[in-house]
Nucleic acid binder design. Structure first.
Lengths: 196, 196
DNA sequence: TGTCAACGGCACGACCGGTGCCGTTAGGGT
DNA sequence: ACCCTAACGGCACCGGTCGTGCCGTTGACA
């Protein structure tokens, strides 16, 4: 075969990166359906062993791929206006959750997690709980600056805010648009805002 | 073979009921994993054709099974105390969602729906939107009786309430216990309650 | 009593998961 | 510069499911 210089044939650990990228590419093209270890191995021109040597199962590979795709954008800005910061972050997250490659991969992980409670715990810990905590940090800061009422436990509020987003993007068919985010924030600010 | 009188061998349309029940039984025993058309056919002592003649795919069968299991309990009570009524209904729904057979079947449907947007729309329309509407009806009634502030669009609030429940039961690993429901209702009543 | 559709059983091809084997190759150690 | 070893790609295999086709049987209704 013509050994094209662009593909130096094989590697050791950099192959891991290539496999994650191949998974994301495949997800972006074929969606959740067609995401399989066989498909990834074919797509990457790789023996299945090369994948199984790195990840014990498809969900493990998907988790790492998701982690790679979800570069930054996890932290809220802090402009001093908590409602504006939440709004911006929710719209950004909503867009990411509904676009490839994050959307299809997230769906695939959620689907697999329905059959495996251990995986469900891992997903929640590694992604959902992280987002909840980040949200809780931001609104707790707003509580300290007086934007939100004091003496209220905001833990459930953070979960409800995130839950509404993920419910809409993963279980509903409606988009996370400005109306939805504004409606959600209306309720949140009506409950805990200090009027201002 | 000994033709036991308890099993009169075959039927025409009542077989559909038996198949739905077999699906629910199987879900209660084996959980989502192991829910397959082959498994249902074995469990019911039935040829696969008998299933495919009634439902085009596994998700279709699951939807009907879910519909059968979800007998009533869909409507809120109306005692005049909206918070108490919501609380009772949320706890009841949370229990149903986390117990067999509804829990496993619901998980299976959600998993399949991640790969099929048409199915996702059907699930949302047939179950989620129904629950949202029922919730909206109840809180709109409370709005008219003065328990909730007027001149506020409660559509998003109904979705947020339901979204929080389904997020917790399907995507999170935390139980829908009294603390969770009370936290959710604290936020809702703080936002839209009339103080009382 | 006869007819016909529904039925249970079986087999098939296609696909995927996960494992084993085999000959090749890249990269680190000497 | 060489060699040795582990990673690699390719292939075959087994067990499982999906969806379909074909068979002979059976039950319900005319």
């Amino acid at each position: 075969m013509t050994d094209s210089p662009a593909t130096p044939r094989r590697r050791g650990a950099a192959r891991t990166e290539e496999l994650l990228q191949a998974t994301l590419d495949l997800a972006a093209e074929a969606g959740y359906a067609g995401l399989s270890i066989e498909a990834v191995s074919r797509r990457a021109g790789v023996g299945k062993h090369t994948i199984y040597r790195r990840w014990p199962s498809m969900p493990a590979l998907l988790l790492d791929a998701l982690n790679r795709a979800w570069t930054s954008d996890l932290d809220y800005r802090d402009t001093g206006d908590v409602r504006a910061d939440l709004r911006e972050q929710f719209l950004r997250s909503g867009l990411a959750l509904s676009s490839p490659p994050i959307g299809p991969v997230y769906r695939a992980v959620i689907a697999e997690a329905q059959a495996d409670s251990a995986l469900r715990a891992t997903v929640h810990e590694r992604f959902l709980a992280t987002v909840e905590q980040s949200t809780l940090d931001r609104i707790t800061r707003a509580q300290r600056t007086g934007e939100l009422v004091a003496e209220v436990n905001l833990e459930f509020a953070a979960e409800v805010l995130c839950g509404a987003l993920y419910y809409r993007s993963l279980l509903s068919t409606r988009p996370i648009d400005e109306d939805a985010v504004d409606g959600l924030l209306d309720m949140f600010m009506a409950a805990y805002g200090t009027g201002g």
